[in-house]
Amino acid sequence: MKNKVNYILLFALSILFVSCAYDNYDAPKSTLHGSIMYKGDTINVERSNGDINNATVYFELWEPGWQKQAAIRVMVNQDGTFNTLLFNANYKLVIPKGQGPFMSLTNAETNSDTIPVRITGNKTMNIEVLPFYMIRNPLFSASGRTVSASCQLEQIIKDANARNIERVTLYISKTSFADGQTNIVKQDLSGSAITDLANVNLNVNVPTFASLNLPDQNYVFARIGLKIQNTDDMIFTSARKIKL
């Protein structure tokens, strides 16, 4: 009798172990990484808070051939890079209309904004886009607790799709995440106040950390952001660490 129980147990266990390998996929192993670029320059955007459903800037990967269609969203980091794990397959990459401070370029192969992506292993791929504006030659300096920044704005899209500048903002933050949500102080310059795109200057007085109830530090990070009318996402410079 005891033997019988043992056999049954052994049989059950073996089923348990064997069948586990049977119906599972391997985890995706191939990485796709790269940057959002315009003619060799990376496009810096706003930080996403980690939740892909609420990512600030993202693009979509569609894999045709399945009965149900749903996109894999890939988040773009604030420095314009992206990184994702995928199964090997042929994907179609689309930047949804209205995403990011840029427009999609027409892909030569598909003759549309769809970019074919073949994943057969790790892959590095930059996505070329057409930004509305670029922020050129940002310069940051500090004297006392005043941070000064200057930059030039270059309008890239000038045809019927051109959009006006809503404002330029200098963001100061404790960490390298410097944007509308994380700044400790900011200075706006509205688009109508900009007379010379090649000469944009912003100054901001950084309050003492004690007055903000924050632990003291002798540096801040600064970034310039450009808000375009009728566009959700801003274009930024990279964050610069500034000693106070």
Binding site: N49, D51, N53, N54, T56, Q181
Partner: peptide
Amino acid sequence: QTNPQYDY
């Protein structure tokens, strides 16, 4: 707090 943006 953590979800400042509204889900689409």
